[in-house]
Design a protein around this nucleic acid. Structure first.
Length: 823
RNA sequence: GCCGAAGUGGCGGAAUUGGUAGACGCGCUGGACUCAAAAUCCAGUCUGGCUCACACCAGGUGCCGGUUCGAGUCCGGCCUUCGGUACCA
């Protein structure tokens, strides 16, 4: 049919218009009504834009457009998270250089993004693999290094003995084998760089109370940081000068310690193990070496361990208790040492039972006897018993009392411990930011001078697996003179975790070409924090925590004035396919292109928004897309029918409802109700109900024929404006057809609802008898209970239910419900 | 195991602080238009009973209880699904 909306012409037409007129170029010098709306930037993989990206970017752009129409100065940038493992793996497989494949992908993705028709300010585009960007990763590294927040230490990596390469966790299959060759992966220690995020643990925790994020995300970060308050207790070792420090949250159970456990990797193990036990200990350590971290920490696995022959001395009672090593003590948490209280800790209980270690009751459960045998660990508070001078004290108070006692005697102190570990940023990979450190035999690790940045990533590198970091193979890169002493030295061969790139990119968008600073400080002061950040929930603990950490660090070195990077955060839901996450490896990725070709960008984006609540996502189905397409067609036909109206008539901003005809009054009320509803819904990312409101509106539009031109224009102008955020191309075209010469987004206008039109004069009141609906009555708004009662007593149906009954009680909720309780 | 979210028609999903369950859309059924089809428009569509029909009656938001004049919504106890996490001393 000829009147079918020709999206294939219209959409490129407006995209070109917007680009040519720089409609979406943000003037950052005006920050008065600033709104920084950001989506997590895209990883330019070969899979290009999929439905998940559309679901993230389309609705968020609609929200940003709505804000722009409301008069906000909106900044909405887009860029590429261009470094990373997949490009390198692709290169290993195909021989195509990561730089080349990444650039090709970016070019295609940029085209796809432009076809979506989002409001991106393309002048702000950035890609992290460019020297002008990653130079500032290196700068950041040096600032952290200066403050002692970047340091090296030994840390295990997944190592495939056959491929001779380091594997990321996701490259290790669940059975602990290499995803490429099936060889069992082992753990190997390498000296690696860390950022001291733990220094900010307390502030990262406290800051969560000040940001508007989903509660579950904040909870995940709280758990991830894992603050616990307790004590550090020092145990002397019998016949040795060494001290074993343990962290405990239950110092009140100190008298119940019957053994001490060290993590098998703990340094003290070599020192303390007696000759007699040496073989056994070595054997045990070997036996757990092959286990992956996942197996090691599995809670279903039975605990194992061996004694090392040495004894620790309990500071509070001088008792000698055996020292064991066991897999359930983790080197990475607390001090790596545990005081075992089998009577009051489930793990210790299980372990003591298995190895026949003594179990001592030192906390009495209320309502039980001291002589009752413990059948399981009692972990709740109670009365302290068998605890020397502390016997009889309530265990909650005992915690503080024991700590005071320990501090007094120098046996320990109060201690706050965090689960959070420092951020390991070294990657034994090619496609990333080189670490700006030079290793000199004489001077040790020497930072590259800031004026020598960037340390450029060389192009010509053997990045295929085999050996260590790929950069080692580039002699040109590796061999440098020591900046301090001038002798021959080597560069650090590792690259940085790509989470470093994404930890501060929102600053860089404000001026991605600045060469004198990582970002424009004066703009950053005005434009950060990001006002709305939208992205996947899978980043809850990594990216979103790292960015908060780096932001606080940047603040502490005087580069920004805000405390948090993202003041509001929303996670879009996941779109699955037949219940499974879409992934290239599963081959269940749905390509959006087919829908864009068939229906156009507006219909597709609107369908994604209409599917359901944004934060829930859902299973993909194209079943209902015809519905949004129909809506678009009807809108287009409506605009066509009234084309030129803007030139034939003018409408007022407000009309007196009483002076309108019945049809006009109806339209007038409906459009104003729709404005109110739509505004509320879209403001809270409830796109599905916002669109439903527009559909209801268009269903009423058939009444326009019976309205004056003024009212027609009044309704259509408003309807098209509401449509503009969710179907921008269509709305522009419709407005154009009405007779406008300008883009809606050039001179943004938003219509406020006329409050008088929102008031209903008649309401329908539900009438219940004994809580069951028996009818409804039409009454004037705010009428009295007596009036409503008179109305309902005239209703035959309702009367029938009241006949011969005694009225016990009447509840009247004005304008809503009238409930009569009868006997 | 622990933490979190969610269970509503054939389907996706609506439902302010407890106040007319099923908005909006898909699908389906019937009708109009057409030589015919597509498209479009109109009507119907929770289940069961009764009825020519209108009406009416009963039941109904995962299950079992409770609070209340009134519960999808609040409380207690389960079941299922999906996310997160994994011995955190």
């Amino acid at each position: 049919m000829s009147s079918k909306y020709p999206f294939a012409e219209i959409e490129p037409k407006w995209q070109n218009f917007w680009e040519k007129n720089k409609t979406y170029k943000t003037d950052l010098s005006h920050s008065g009504k600033k709104l920084y709306c950001l989506v997590m930037f895209i990883y330019p993989s070969g899979a290009k834009l999929h439905i998940g990206h559309w679901y993230n970017y389309g609705p968020t752009d609609s929200w940003a457009r709505y804000q722009k129409l409301k008069g906000k100065n909106v900044f909405e940038p887009m860029g590429y998270d261009a470094f990373g493992l997949p490009a390198e793996n692709y290169a290993i497989k195909t021989g195509i250089h990561p730089h080349d494949s990444t650039m090709t992908n970016i070019d295609e993705i940029r085209m796809q993004l432009k076809r979506m028709g989002c409001m991106y300010d393309w002048d702000a585009e950035l890609m992290t693999c460019e020297p002008k960007y990653y130079k500032w990763n290196q700068w950041l590294f040096l600032q952290l290094y200066k403050k002692g927040l970047a340091y090296r230490k030994n840390a295990p990596v997944n190592w495939c003995p056959k491929d001779q390469t380091v594997l990321a966790n996701e490259q290790v299959l669940s059975d602990g084998t290499c995803e490429r060759c099936g060889t069992t992966v082992i753990q190997k220690n390498l000296t690696q760089w860390f950022f001291k995020i733990t220094e900010y643990a307390e502030e990262l925790l406290a800051g969560l109370d000040k940001i508007t994020w989903p509660e579950k995300t904040k909870l995940m970060q709280r758990n991830w940081i894992g603050k616990s308050v307790g004590a550090e207790v020092h145990f002397k070792v019998d016949g040795s000068e060494e001290i074993i420090s343990v962290f405990t949250t239950r110092p009140d159970t100190l008298f119940g310690v019957t053994y001490v456990v060290l993590a098998p990797e703990h340094n003290l193990v070599d020192i303390l193990t007696t000759n007699e036990f040496r073989n056994q200990v070595q054997e045990y350590r070997n036996s757990i070496k092959s286990l992956t971290e996942i197996e090691r920490t599995s809670t279903v696995k039975e605990k194992t361990g061996v004694p090392i022959g040495a004894f620790a001395i309990n500071p509070v009672n001088g008792e000698k208790v055996p020292i064991w090593i066991a897999d359930y003590a983790l080197a990475t948490y607390g001090t790596g040492c545990v005081m075992a209280v089998p009577g009051h800790d489930e793990r210790d209980f299980e372990f003591a039972k298995k190895f026949h270690l003594p179990i001592r009751k030192v906390i009495l459960q209320p309502g039980t006897n001291e002589t009752d045998e413990l059948t399981e660990a009692y972990t709740e508070p109670g009365t302290m018993i068998n605890s020397g001078s502390f016997t009889g004290v309530n265990s909650d108070e005992g915690i503080e009392k024991i700590i005071s006692y320990l501090e007094e005697k120098g046996f320990g102190k109060k201690k706050v411990n965090y689960r959070l570990r420092d951020w390991l940023i070294s990657r034994q990979r090619y496609w990333g930011t080189p670490i700006p450190i030079i290793h000199c035999e004489k001077c040790g690790e020497v930072p590259v001078d800031e004026k020598d940045l960037p340390v450029e990533l060389p192009y010509d590198v053997q990045f295929k697996p085999g050996g260590e970091s790929p950069l080692i193979s580039s002699e040109k890169f590796m061999n440098v003179k020591c900046p301090k002493c001038g002798s021959n030295a080597k560069r650090d061969p590792d690259t940085m975790d790509t989470f470093v790139d994404s930890a501060w990119y929102y600053f860089r968008y404000l001026n991605p070409n600045i060469t004198t600073d990582p970002f424009d400080k004066s703009l950053a002061d005005k434009w950060t924090p990001v006002d709305m950040y939208v992205g996947g929930a899978e980043h809850a603990t990594m990216h979103l925590l790292y960015a908060r950490f780096i932001h606080k660090f940047i603040r502490d070195i005087g580069y920004t004035n805000s405390d948090e990077p993202f003041s509001h955060l929303i996670h879009q839901g996941t779109i699955t396919n037949q219940g499974a996450k879409m992934s290239k490896s599963k081959g269940n990725v749905v390509n959006p292109d087919q829908f864009i070709e068939k229906y156009g960008s507006d219909v597709f984006r609107m369908y994604l928004m209409f599917m359901g609540p944004y934060e829930l996502g859902g299973d993909w189905s194209d079943k209902g897309i015809a519905g949004t397409d129909r809506f678009v067609q009807r809108t287009y036909e409506l605009a066509m029918k009234f084309s030129g109206l803007l030139k034939q008539s003018a409408s007022q901003n407000v009309y007196d409802v009483e002076k309108l005809s019945e049809n006009e009054k109806h339209i007038y009320k409906k459009i104003n109700q729709t404005i109110k509803k739509f505004d509320e819904e879209i403001n809270h990312f409830r796109f599905n109900t916002a669109i439903a409101a527009l559909m209801e509106m268009i269903n009423e539009m058939k009444l326009l024929d019976a309205c004056s031109k003024e009212i027609q224009l009044y309704a259509l102008k408003r309807f098209i404006t509401l449509l503009a955020p969710i179907a921008p191309h269509l709305a522009e075209e419709c407005y154009n057809m009405l007779g406008s010469e300008k883009s809606i987004f050039e001179n943004p206008v938003w219509y406020e609802a006329d409050p008088i039109a929102l008031v209903e004069d008649m309401v329908s009141i539900a009438v219940q008898v004994n809580g069951k609906l028996r009818g409804t009555v039409q009454a004037a708004i705010n009428c009295s209970q007596t009036e409503v009662k008179n109305l309902l007593l005239n209703d035959e149906k309702i009367k029938k239910h009241l006949e011969g009954k005694e009225i016990v009680k009447e509840i009247y909720v004005p304008n809503k419900i009238y409930n009569i309780v009868v006997k």
